[in-house]
Design a binder for these strands. Structure first.
Lengths: 247, 247
DNA sequence: GTAATAGTGTCTTTAAGACACTATGTA
DNA sequence: TACATAGTGTCTTAAAGACACTATTAC
């Protein structure tokens, strides 16, 4: 190792090097359902299958920079969104062409941005993520198109999406990430809907409200949710600073 | 992207590619203190500084395979140990020689294996990890040699160790990972010592015992901890199957 | 018996689940 | 005024913190 590193320091070409890509799991909630943006592959390999938006990492480009470039280019998403590194997938045969190691990121998109991105590109599809409501291990996920048909996924992208869902579920009740899926002002009911869509379970209303208000993550705006039928709910806003421990 | 991917599929040499390494945070508990194994760098860059054991990833080698190869080669650790991917660090200038993206893993070593590894290699040091006892964000860590002197770290390896500590603290109370730092049989007091060393806080004894016994993670062996002075404690064993949810 | 740690009983406190209740807007 | 959802009061239940107590073994 030390020897190899020494050699490599003087001759970067001494070793065959893998290609490195960044792939993005773009997540959002539409109609109370957790969905992911997928792109149809036009070329071999995995032609006709559905893949995560991604790109090679340029030689002088940071990983997160690459992710934001893909967000802007593929999905035309320029506004600030939540983006987090997920996991790095590097099985030698995960791509039949050559050795490609991919650093997966996931992004959380408010519904408005998600549907806007969908309108701008015609080869993107918004797929339902179907998974068991078990927190422990999200073994596999199925991706379904708007008509309910299961989409075949390219490479190991099913594993990547499963890992993203696992991460999201794991972080949901100790990190303020649900707000990244909502507009700036939202009702507590909408927040609960987001939690339920991610977890795949229903939650107790009073307990949920108490817990959210106790975190200090949100504050009420004086305003109310006009436009709905019947009694309008208060609109809240993510405060973005206060925090509380896990327990 | 699609175009780039297309081109690359026919000419893997078309783009400059980064080098990819795997670096390992080797963690263990000695004298009730969380420690990490570091290697002194003999060559430039970062000559004389302390670095994590690591290696380039061979072109047909999986990432976890590379990690296990480093475990075996650098630290002579062949026995089964807990190993988990941590995070991928890829800032363009993190290594002055060239673009190197490193996939960091961390391993949890029982004390006996750790000290054995230390005996076999003379350029390894077992460094104390000094950090704030705050769960939220482990901003920075300090690494101290056995005499208490702060060790200067190579590259971004301080960030990597801080990330490992953060991960360890985060997983501690919902995943059965503390057992990876203990011998097969251990007392509840030893288990509590491990938790306290990782968290940097002291814990309530009855509550800790109740919680551990409720998880179903451990079972009593009939035996007792002979050799100690005064009343011997019961030895427990990690059962390895039963689990419980996060809350 | 004494020292010193192993291990437990129990009271308090905190927070989640359950469920019924009141409140308030639109139609 | 009726409807449907917003929002709350409160009882129960589960589990953590605190702290004092008992148990056991080497010496």
């Amino acid at each position: 190792m030390t020897e190899a590193e020494f050699l490599a320091s003087y001759d970067p070409e001494a070793f065959a090097r893998p290609s490195v890509t960044v792939d993005l799991v773009l997540l959002g909630i539409v109609d109370g359902q957790l969905k992911a943006l997928l792109r149809r592959r036009d070329d071999y390999p995995a032609k006709g299958k559905w893949a995560l938006p991604g790109s090679f990492v340029a030689i002088d480009e940071g990983l997160e920079s690459a992710a934001r470039r893909i967000l802007a280019g593929e999905a035309r998403i320029v506004r600030e969104v939540y983006l987090e590194q997920l996991y790095t997938f590097g099985a030698p045969a995960r791509d039949p062409r050559m050795r490609i190691i991919t650093v997966a990121y996931y992004a959380l998109l408010p519904t408005a941005i998600l549907t806007e991105a969908l309108d701008l590109a015609d080869d993107l599809v918004l797929a339902d993520i179907v998974a068991e409501p078990v927190i422990e291990q999200v073994g596999t996920v199925e991706l379904r198109d708007p008509k309910g048909a299961t989409l075949p996924l390219a490479f190991d992208h099913g594993d990547i999406i499963a890992t993203a869902l696992q991460r999201l579920r794991g972080k949901l009740d100790y990190a303020p990430i649900a707000f990244a899926l909502l507009p700036e002002r939202f009702t507590l009911r909408a927040l609960q809907d987001v939690h339920e869509a991610i977890l795949g379970t229903s939650l107790n209303k009073p307990a949920f409200r108490r817990r959210m208000l106790d975190t200090g993550w949100i504050e009420g705006t004086g305003k109310r949710d006009t436009g709905g039928a019947f009694r309008p709910a208060e609109l809240f806003r993510y405060r973005g600073k206060a925090r509380r421990g896990r327990r």
